[in-house]
């Protein structure tokens, strides 16, 4: 099975409003895949469709190579953005119940529960009610419930929201363990640095559409603006040479304190342009170079460039999404 999740032409309509507008998405098996997008982009709607919680209006979704069914979802673990626990249940009974819902008999899950609790140093809380636990401990129980049934695909919706630094580290450890075991992880976030640190594949969706997808490197090279940062040795102005070059799409004038008059330039490369051609051109034209540096865009830059900033629109979308779900 090449793809853990395949979405083909998936649309979700609520009345005349389209929350997801024809998304095609392939999540390669064994990858840690970041689903990026602003609030209200359609991330949670997409995840809920993958999990069969809501039905797509059109299109096809396959999970672990099969159409979405309760059987296939037994091999999926899910940590929703809004998450809670039965406060009156004991830790062991809750975990056993959630595992049983995934088709793992209580007898089978009992040693797994003990092992996970021991791993998080929570073994002595086994028979405590959830309401007796701190919020941080309850979150650990939620992590355990997500992975307890040994899923092939783990879906984490904004997993870091509401976590203290200690639990953020715990969650990163869990993700590390899952990666090592070759599990596929789908991870949605609007905090781009989390994705850049953890994911090897990403996609960006906004306003119900898929804008970009690929490996982190691909996304940066294909969709980010590449800059060349140049400094002349004698502080002379190379702006005219740069502007004349076919490889350069735009030249930003020196900015920032102390840059002006010191021969500093930022040139944006044109699509598909080779920075080596530009270097050769500059040398040929006798520009005395002190520095020639190719600057990779951060994922955040790509994100901002592609998504743009349209908070009013986003808020409206989010509101409608919530009202319609």
């Amino acid at each position: 099975m090449k793809h853990a999740v395949e979405m083909t032409g998936v649309v979700k309509r609520y009345g005349d409003f389209e929350a997801v507008r024809g998304v095609d998405l392939r999540i390669p098996t064994g990858t840690t895949y970041g689903l990026l997008g602003p609030n209200g982009a359609g991330k949670t709607t997409s995840i809920r469709m993958i999990l069969g919680i809501i039905e797509p209006s059109a299109g096809e979704i396959r999970v672990l190579g099969e159409p979405v069914s309760r059987e296939v979802l037994d091999h999926v673990g899910y940590l929703p953005e809004e998450r809670g626990v039965y406060k009156k249940m004991t830790v062991r009974r809750l975990l056993s119940f959630l595992a049983e819902l995934k088709g793992v008999a209580p007898r089978q899950s009992a040693p797994w529960i003990d092992r996970w609790l021991a791993r998080f140093e929570m073994a002595e809380w086994r028979d405590s009610r959830l309401e007796e636990l701190s919020k941080g401990m309850q979150q650990k129980i939620q992590f355990i419930s997500t992975v307890l049934h040994d899923p092939e695909l783990v879906i984490l919706d904004e997993p870091f929201s509401g976590l203290d630094p200690i639990n953020q580290r715990v969650l990163r450890e869990i993700i590390g363990i899952l990666k090592k075991e070759g599990k596929t992880i789908l991870f949605s976030t609007h905090i781009i640095e989390h994705a850049e640190r953890i994911c090897d594949h990403v996609c960006i969706i906004a306003r119900g559409r898929l804008l970009v997808d690929g490996t982190v490197q691909q996304v940066k090279t294909d969709h980010g603006e590449r800059f060349v940062s140049i400094a002349t040795a004698d502080g002379s102005d190379a702006g005219a040479v740069l502007r004349a070059s076919a490889a350069v799409a735009a030249v930003r004038d020196p900015s920032g304190p102390g840059e002006a008059g010191r021969g500093l330039h930022h040139a944006t490369l044109g699509p598909g342009a080779d920075p080596n051609d530009l270097l050769r051109e500059l040398v040929d034209k006798g520009v005395p170079l002190r520095r020639f540096e190719l600057v990779e865009p951060t994922l955040e830059q790509v994100f901002i460039d592609r998504v743009g900033e349209d908070p009013v629109q986003d808020e409206r979308l989010q509101e409608r999404e919530v009202a319609h779900v």
Partner: peptide
């Protein structure tokens, strides 16, 4: 109401209809 308010239901609905 407890399942809805305490956000338990979404996990449950990823396992049962």
């Amino acid at each position: 109401l407890e399942e809805k308010r305490d956000r338990i239901v979404e996990v449950l609905l990823s396992s049962v209809t």
